[in-house]
């Protein structure tokens, strides 16, 4: 056996069929009918009963759609109702549009992606690397640039758990994993991942915990082991990850209470965004200062946040319990330093 024969791997029928379908439709000058597809043994169909091949073709379209290859039904102009269904790649939804991006756009995008990546393992690294490598270079070509942007992409350590979280989110397949919570208890969980975020150098994913029946947030580095991917799911249309960017006063079983804080003039909107994370209602007063109303669960933690930003003019306004907790912590600190 020569080296070439030794190298040749076994080819997988399913993968070959999916790729043939994509290739054939990509190369086709006209849409292909259902019969042309499911009756074609070279494409990988036509070996079983027609119903079985139709189901296979439907599943194959779904698999390719997961990877952004959208195969859609088209109706030829003048076709009668009796005409067979015909299929083509939806080029608008599948392929990036050329000719509309500019060199400056691509340059800015490359830098933005690099800075967003940071330096910690995160599930967001995989799609960001995809954008950086494929899209930046491809966009550069679309914009008429002869060279890919010279700045190399940052090197990041691979993280198998972050990989798995991203794969689950990307394919919308439940993540089955052993997770150790803050109390140190490890349990197997099945999570339909709805969103991913990073905070203070750590990455988190939020989704429906099947066993608990509620939407929860998990820290990626507390996933001890990934057991596999489970069932498919849909993400609720109104789900926004921004509603789950937690603040220190969210972690309590106590009911939510409306709290009000004030900030002095001089602090900028973006500084406030870093503190408030877009939660609650922020209103600028006539004196130039700010008032922030937000739901809190842990009043003591809310008082701690207020003190941690005292130099920004952050002060507690309501409820009384918040003001009292804030004052008590101040006086305890004074007492400790007077002793």
């Amino acid at each position: 056996m020569d080296e070439e024969e030794e190298r040749a791997p076994r080819v997988d029928d399913t993968a070959q069929r999916l790729l043939n379908l994509m290739f054939t439709l990509n190369a086709a000058a006209h849409p292909l009918t259902t019969d042309q597809i499911v009756g074609d043994s070279d494409l990988g169909y036509g070996h079983e009963q027609r119903e079985s091949d139709l189901r296979k073709f439907r599943r194959d379209r779904e698999k390719l759609a997961e990877r952004g290859i959208i195969i859609t039904e088209v109706t030829a102009p003048g076709a009668s109702e009796a005409e067979q269904r015909a299929w083509a790649i939806d080029r608008e939804r599948t392929f990036a549009a050329g000719g509309i991006v500019r060199e400056d756009d691509v340059r800015l995008l490359a830098r933005a992606v690099d800075e967003y990546l940071g330096s910690h393992p995160t599930p967001l690294a995989i799609p960001l690397k995809a954008v950086r490598r494929s899209c930046v270079d491809a966009l550069a070509a679309l914009a008429g640039e002869d060279e890919a942007f010279a700045r190399p992409a940052p090197k990041l350590d691979e993280d198998a758990i972050a990989d798995a979280v991203w794969t689950a989110f990307s394919l919308k397949r439940s993540l089955i994993a052993t997770y150790r919570n803050a109390a140190g208890t490890a349990r197997r969980r099945t999570v339909a991942v709805y969103g991913i975020f990073t905070s203070a150098g750590l990455s988190y994913f939020t989704g429906l915990d099947r066993e608990a029946g509620t939407v929860r947030t998990f820290r990626t580095d507390r996933v001890e082991r990934v057991h596999g991917l489970g069932e498919s799911y849909d993400i609720p249309s109104d789900f926004s990850i921004r509603d789950h960017l937690f603040l220190p006063f969210d972690f309590s079983d106590a009911p939510e209470a409306r709290a009000t804080f004030s900030f002095s003039p001089g602090i900028g909107e973006m500084e406030l965004a870093a503190i408030t994370q877009g939660r609650g209602d922020l209103v600028q007063r006539e004196d130039g200062g700010w008032t922030w109303d937000v739901e809190v669960r842990d009043i003591d933690a809310a008082a701690e946040v207020t003190l941690a930003h005292a130099r920004f003019g952050m002060r507690p306004v309501a409820p009384d319990a918040l003001v009292e907790s804030w004052r008590a912590k101040l006086m305890r600190t004074v007492g400790v330093h007077n002793a």
Partner: peptide
């Protein structure tokens, strides 16, 4: 620029979708 990049790269049916990824870094 955001409009041009979105039209070039994003799937057409996701442009009105609420955010599913975020960073608390400002």
């Amino acid at each position: 620029a955001r409009g041009r990049l979105s039209r070039a790269l994003l799937p057409p049916d996701m442009r009105s979708t609420p955010p599913r990824a975020a960073s608390t870094t400002v």
